[in-house]
Simulated assay, not measured.
Amino acid sequence: MAIKKLEKGLIHIYTGDGKGKTTAAIGQGTRTAGGGYKVLMVQFLKGDDTGELHSIERMAPNFKLIRYAPLNSFYKFLKEEEKEAVKREVQQGLQEVISYLEGDEFNLIILDEIMAVLFNEILSVEDIIKLIEKKPPLVELILTGRNAPKELMDLADYVTEMKMIKHPFEKGIYARKGIES
């Protein structure tokens, strides 16, 4: 069965050092799924159990989540063999994302923390540019994470920077269940 089609698919980037990049992507996904469209959120390097995961589960079948190389630590603290395993899983994830782009199953695809994959040199900017080039005209694409490279921002239709002005972490208040996690 063919899915409902968007009028036009654009590219969004949510970047910056502030809170809210993933939340904004999920918000857009919620709007899209609520409109009867199909959403795929692909999270890279995230392993924590967060409230948003449970919300997304409740939106099935219109909103699907897949995780690649889920970590509960920072990549830079992994041993070399662990880093190699992460790289293999992310490469596999990239190929699967490309197959989803080439398929006709989703209207919106979110690549959450793809910038962290780039920052940690697990994939290259060229890898992501090639992925973007495969995006069909009627599929919306969201890329999130800190330190978005200029080359990707130049390709995007929307670029939103979340800027931290103040954060409770500075006072020793860590991620709270239901708010930050």
Rank of each mutant, 00 (worst) to 15 (best):
G29Y: 05
V39T: 06
T23P: 08
I56N: 01
H54R: 11
K5T: 07
F106R: 00
Y100G: 03
L101R: 02
R31Y: 08
K19S: 06
E80D: 14
A2N: 13
Y158W: 15
D17W: 04
G36K: 02
D104P: 05
I132F: 09
Y14L: 07
P168G: 08
E140I: 04
S124A: 05
G27Q: 05
Q95K: 13
V97Q: 03
L45I: 01
L101C: 05
P136W: 00
I132N: 07
I13F: 12
A156E: 07
K135W: 00
Q91Y: 08
G27E: 02
I98P: 00
E133S: 12
D112K: 07
V117T: 03
H54I: 00
A60E: 10
R67T: 00
D154A: 14
V125Q: 08
D49C: 06
G93C: 03
Q91F: 08
K83F: 10
T50L: 14
L155Q: 13
V125G: 09
T50M: 12
A69I: 00
G145R: 10
D104V: 01
K130Y: 01
L65W: 01
G35T: 06
R88C: 01
Y158R: 09
E113Q: 13
I165D: 05
L78D: 09
R176Q: 15
K177P: 01
G36C: 03
L111R: 03
K46G: 03
D49N: 14
M153S: 05
I122A: 15
K46V: 02
A2Y: 12
I26T: 12
L118Q: 09
M41T: 03
D104N: 15
T50F: 12
K135N: 00
G35W: 09
L6E: 12
R88K: 14
G51W: 05
V159Q: 03
F169E: 02
A24C: 08
S181Q: 09
D17P: 04
M162I: 01
V125K: 11
I173S: 07
E126V: 05
I3E: 14
D49M: 11
L53K: 09
K135E: 00
M162T: 01
D112N: 11
L131R: 09
I142P: 06
G51Y: 09
D49I: 10
R88H: 04
E121V: 04
E151N: 07
I129T: 12
I173M: 09
Y14H: 13
V42P: 02
E81I: 04
L65Y: 01
N62T: 07
M41I: 06
L6W: 13
K64D: 01
S124V: 00
